[in-house]
Design a protein around this nucleic acid. Structure first.
Lengths: 193, 193
DNA sequence: GCTGTCACTTGACAGGTGTACAGTCGCGCA
DNA sequence: TGCGCGACTGTACACCTGTCAAGTGACAGC
């Protein structure tokens, strides 16, 4: 008889290994390699275990995304609590592995609706935190006429970092340096050294 | 005997139909639907014709990309020749179907190296044209201290537009309006109405 | 009328995909 | 000692993927 099919034992060691392997696959080989068999093989487990611990690939990808998101939250929080929060945030945004992983999720989001919803939710909450942080900085340092609204700055930082990663993926580098310099100069107006 | 396999008859009507169908599939259903069978079925042709006219899916996707690229070049050129070139370019960048299609190519680029190379080449040439256009505007209007270097402005416009499209794909809209307003205000400094 | 060429069709291959279900093993508890 | 249950395995399904080889039919040129 088939029993519980371990969907609930969220802490089982094997389950964790699968999540870990899935995450590594995504980082190292990208979304096309995100398949039950590849992931299981990376974890040195039988492919059927994927569907023993997860109802579907969609449930797996959402689980993996949530884990990424949680660990990113830590880094994000540290950045915003550092002495120059915006520069730290910018460095985090540009951190290639994280940014690249997000691109893979974008591709997988085309296939799995539940992942899109998860991305929306987490994306909006990160953005809200950033906007709040920027507004706090302005208030604390008495910046009354910032170069741009807090929301625009937060969104621009993500946009620029993401774009640099996308273009690097196709070996495009033209104008990246200038763009990076411009962003850093802008941040200097909030976050002087 | 197998003959030429139509690889060279680049103008054949059937071949054009395949290219057209592939392009529509990409726009309407995204990269996961970019398969020989779906494309042929959309063109109401037998799937094997795809490999009669194209050596491989990679050759097809590169061909389709080049066509997109060429038609985009026209729009791009018109924008840069208009009375307010940067606003026109910005509107073009934000044009959702074009921007969304580019995202699909990014996903396909993970699979097809030749597509990546094509994207790099065309991406760099568009960027070079934009930088040149911005520098011309500065020269003509006597803008000696622009808010940012021409290269940074060109790259930022792409980055922001692309990012808005990515986020819209997952139904994220927070801060988009503010970002759009900021970009337009920046462009006003180059391109007054 | 024969031949060759071009456009296309028929049929198939090997490999990959997500997913399901019944069976087995081992360990804790009665 | 036996039972139950959770963890895992074996086997299989239906479907989809890119790609290929051979054959068919029409038409042009000799």
């Amino acid at each position: 008889m088939v029993a519980n099919r371990g969907y609930n034992s969220t802490s089982a060691k094997t389950r964790q290994r699968l999540i870990e392997a899935a995450s590594e696959i995504l980082d190292e080989e990208g979304y096309p390699a995100f398949t039950a068999r590849r992931i299981a093989s990376r974890a040195e487990l039988k492919p059927q275990l994927v569907h023993y611990y997860f109802r579907s690939m969609e449930e797996l990808v959402v689980t993996v995304f949530k884990r990424s998101s949680a660990s990113y939250f830590q880094l994000h929080d540290e950045a915003l609590s550092s002495p120059r929060p915006l520069h730290a945030l910018w460095r985090l945004n540009c951190h290639i592995p994280e940014a690249r992983r997000m691109l893979e999720y974008v591709a997988l989001g085309k296939i799995y609706p539940a992942l899109r919803e998860e991305m929306r939710a987490s994306g909006e909450s990160f953005r809200a935190l950033q906007i709040e942080a920027i507004e706090n900085i302005c208030r604390q340092r008495g910046i009354d006429n910032p170069p741009m609204p807090a929301a625009a700055l937060a969104a621009m930082m993500s946009a620029v970092a993401r774009s640099i990663v996308i273009e690097s993926n196709v070996a495009m580098t033209m104008a990246h340096e200038e763009l990076n310099t411009f962003v850093e100069k802008t941040l200097d107006q909030y976050d002087p050294s």
